[in-house]
């Protein structure tokens, strides 16, 4: 079991440093993923577009099925978007 002991300000600084390192590593991995995407696109963009369109279609079909099943969901999404617009923030749905 990990013990979180020691002087509190010091511990806080160390924990934050750990989190920041982890976040930085994740971000670098995501940037590498972008490079991989571009590599695949340069190899065969036609195929890539096909996969992208198929994935988009499946995503929206599933989402729309949910909305049809539960009309409240559609209402919540609309309210969420409009609330986000009023507060000047971007809305978050199902990214």
């Amino acid at each position: 079991m990990v013990q979180i002991t020691g002087c509190e300000p010091e511990m806080s600084r160390e924990l934050i440093e750990e989190l920041e390192r982890e976040r930085r590593r994740n971000f670098i991995d995501r940037l590498k993923h972008v490079d991989w995407e571009v590599e695949q696109i340069l190899k065969d963009h036609r195929k890539w577009f096909e996969i992208q369109a198929e994935w988009s279609k499946k995503y929206y079909e599933a989402l729309y099925r949910q909305m049809d099943k539960d009309p409240k969901l559609k209402k919540i999404i609309i309210e969420n978007i409009l609330r986000g617009d009023q507060s000047g923030e971007k809305h978050i749905t199902f990214k």
Partner: peptide, 21 residues
């Protein structure tokens, strides 16, 4: 790429997509 061409003179990018998102 095999679906994108760039017309340098008119600064137009031409994209061919068989399926749209």
């Amino acid at each position: 790429t095999n679906t994108i061409e760039y017309d340098e003179t008119r600064r137009i990018i031409k994209v061919r997509k068989e399926k749209l998102t």
